[in-house]
Design a binder for these strands. Structure first.
Lengths: 187, 187
DNA sequence: GACGAAATGTTAGCCGCTAACATTTTCTTG
DNA sequence: CAAGAAAATGTTAGCGGCTAACATTTCGTC
């Protein structure tokens, strides 16, 4: 039967996620203990780690990589590496599903004020970066330039995301678009 | 008397640093225990932490920030944020003292193959990034664009550094110069 | 040589995280 | 529906990074 929205596992995970974000918002990420999260969710510490590989995984999730490769591949190869990377991400972003509302903002907002989490985000970007690099190289870009361009682009977008989360006066889409423009040289 | 090159403290620190890098190179960063480092240096675990605030501080050190601000300030404000940031760093880099040979390369090389250390580097860049942002904003750049430009530039340079450490066919100066060119759009 | 300060040692403990094994809950199937 | 397989959670024990509080040694100086 599938009457529930998710099995027991899914429900436990959702509870852990929610309790964790609550605690992070109220008393800070570093000050919150995994034991506290587990208790709030009515579960054992061990169970927490069965749902999240590490404490920071509550906030930092894996990215949606696949789309990016195609988008970058579609860019004309006459452009400069950075410009091409940016153009690819612009296209990729346009194709992405609208991010699910509230939770994204909560997460990013927490990450924005927690240095150690910013590091976690950077580490997480590594896989996306690799995809970008591969795609650029496949199109004939020098590997070193490709690395630099990919790293710079992702860092720029990440910075825009962190900034966006702290303000209420701008849509996520616009924030990213503006960041890409900055990287582009369009402004 | 001052016959020694440094007091006891300085010597202990040097020993710890050397033993740590040795162990990291031989058996990997993650696989090396602070206890092992301490023992190799003939010292207690506690003493290690009295010299390095954290294990990763052996590899990731604080940057030379001060120069950057001035260099960026000297750039004409007609340029695009990213271009100006890059131009500033180009100038700053030219003024930096030649990095002390071997140890830099050892450190960066270790960082290059250790994901968790890449994160530490990113976190460490935060302060330099802030300086860059402040300088750009002071010159009239929109704060958001400044953040993006600063983050992108530093990420690009960092990527170049990591890449440089893994090859023997290029000078550090050239690697950085090339990265700046990529960010610039000069290539 | 005595004395104060700097450097190091000792002990105890928190927190993130993992492994090995036991227990319960849920699903399936005869 | 009973029974066994599979999934989810619990229990215990322990490692490694890191911190705090207090004791001890070493060093420079008078």
């Amino acid at each position: 039967m599938e009457s529930e929205v998710g099995g027991r596992r899914a429900r436990t995970r959702a509870r852990l996620l929610d309790c964790a974000l609550d605690l992070f918002e109220r008393q800070g990420y570093e000050q919150t203990t995994v034991a506290q999260i587990a208790e709030a969710a009515g579960v054992t510490e061990m169970t927490f780690f069965r749902h999240f590989a590490a404490k920071d995984r509550v906030v930092v999730e894996d990215p949606y990589d696949p789309l990016i490769a195609d988008a970058v591949a579609a860019q004309p190869r006459t452009l400069t590496p950075l410009v091409r990377a940016v153009a690819g991400l612009r296209t990729a972003w346009a194709q992405l599903p609208e991010p699910q509302s509230q939770t994204v903002r909560r997460r990013v907002r927490i990450a924005a004020v927690t240095p150690s989490l910013r590091a976690a985000i950077a580490a997480n970007n590594a896989t996306t970066e690799q995809i970008l690099v591969d795609q650029l190289v496949a199109d004939g870009t020098d590997p070193r330039s490709a690395r630099v361009a990919a790293a710079a682009t992702l860092a720029g977008i990440t910075a825009a995301l962190l900034d966006w989360s702290q303000r209420d006066d701008i849509a996520l889409t616009d924030a990213v678009a503006a960041a890409l423009d900055t990287l582009d040289g369009r402004r």
